[in-house]
Amino acid sequence: MIDHAHDLRSVHEATDRLLTAVAKLDNAKLAEESRLPGWSRGHVLAHLARNADALVEVFEGRPMYESATSRESDIERDAGRPLLEQLEDVRNSADRWQAVAAAPQDWTRTVELRNGVTDSAARVPFRRLIEVELHHVDLDIGYELSDLPGEFTGREIEFLAERWSGRPDVPPTALSATDGRHWRTGSAGDPAVTVTGAAAALLGWLAGRGDKGASLTTEGGPLPALPPL
């Protein structure tokens, strides 16, 4: 069951962790490459700030982004700012989103996100948590997939496993974490492949991060290729 109040608290805590870590950088470090191809650390922070603003738009009944082009141009525009401006923007945009999300509202309603994706309003705080946690890892400043809270890791694996469920281009696949947790993804039918490893490694594979599945073991066939996120 989705608990939006719990997730909003988790977003606040994750944002504080990220801001505390980023505050230790300097302008030169901010301009260095992140783990996302073509993006500096400044690009990642600009994206996080604009994503928070976009979710305000969603909750106020407007399109998430004006267009794909404007989304990209806004990130490029803001990526090269100095550290203090980046920190202030991420903090202030996060506060605006939290204030809108904290207002009384119908959490059962359906909202429209980017590219025509729809979801219940109650699940949007977790979507924001995904942005903050995974992009903290993407910054490449010492926060790794293995540092993610265990509850988040399990829920994000479930979220991504659901995303690839029913896809004819992904074979039916069983996911088995070494801590005893299990999931399933891919097309219908009995799992043809079992993928086993640490939960953090499973998440990295599903999200296209970390070693992208190199540390996982498989039975029944090779590691399935996943569509891009």
Rank of each mutant, 00 (worst) to 15 (best):
A214L: 06
G80K: 08
H12K: 14
W97N: 03
R62D: 00
T69E: 15
L30Q: 00
D89F: 09
W205H: 04
A192H: 10
L113H: 05
G154F: 04
H136K: 08
N115T: 14
A94N: 06
P149A: 05
V132N: 07
V117G: 11
R167K: 14
E156K: 13
H135A: 00
W183K: 05
H136C: 10
R81G: 00
A214W: 00
R17N: 10
V170L: 02
A49L: 08
N92F: 09
A46W: 01
D190F: 06
T118Q: 15
D138W: 08
Q105K: 02
D211N: 12
F159D: 11
P82N: 13
A177E: 09
G166Q: 13
F126L: 12
L84N: 14
R71G: 08
L202T: 06
S34P: 00
E112D: 09
R77S: 13
H47R: 05
S215N: 12
T218N: 06
P171S: 05
P37D: 14
G42N: 02
A31R: 07
E112H: 05
R155E: 12
Q98I: 03
G150T: 15
G150N: 11
N92E: 12
R109P: 09
E33K: 15
G116C: 09
P82D: 14
L223A: 10
D147A: 15
E162H: 13
G186P: 06
D211R: 15
E158Y: 01
I2P: 02
G80L: 10
V56W: 10
R184W: 01
R77Q: 14
A103M: 10
A101N: 05
L216A: 09
H182P: 00
P171W: 04
K24D: 04
V111S: 09
E32A: 07
V170M: 08
Y143Q: 15
E13Y: 11
N92A: 10
R41E: 02
E131K: 05
A122I: 07
A68E: 14
K29Q: 12
